[in-house]
């Protein structure tokens, strides 16, 4: 891992068009500003990892589990019926 020391107000440029700026340090909280093109997705790592973990958990349910789920839903009372698309 590349390790750089920066002061408040200083920046790091990543690639051609991503700029990370240290905005403020208050105790153990560091505010970071990120300028990136819109197609670059920027997320808090823990959010990203939680979603990856949820996707892994959801992966490849057994056919039996899927069938049971589908029939359980069918048996639910007062489920709003999906509208016709047109």
């Amino acid at each position: 891992m590349l390790v750089l020391s920066r002061k408040v107000g200083e920046s790091i440029v990543i690639g051609d068009d991503v700029v990370v700026t240290i905005l403020e340090i208050r105790g153990d909280l560091i505010r970071v500003g990120i300028d990136a093109p819109k197609h670059v997705k920027v997320h808090r790592r823990e959010v990203f990892e939680a979603i990856e973990a949820a996707n892994r958990e959801a992966l490849a349910p057994t056919l039996a589990a899927m069938d049971e789920f589908a029939s359980a839903i069918k048996g639910l009372p007062a489920m709003p019926k999906a509208k016709d698309p047109k």
């Binding site: 959801a58 992966l59 490849a60 349910p61 899927m66 789920f69 589908a70 839903i73 489920m79």
Partner: peptide, 25 residues
């Protein structure tokens, strides 16, 4: 679509059979 009412779907990878998910609207 896994049920007639369109309340459950399987999202199945066309590239790898083991990659599939259940999704609901």
């Amino acid at each position: 679509k896994l049920n007639d009412e369109g309340l459950v779907y399987r999202l199945q990878s066309l590239e790898e059979a083991a990659i599939n998910f259940v999704v609901v609207p």
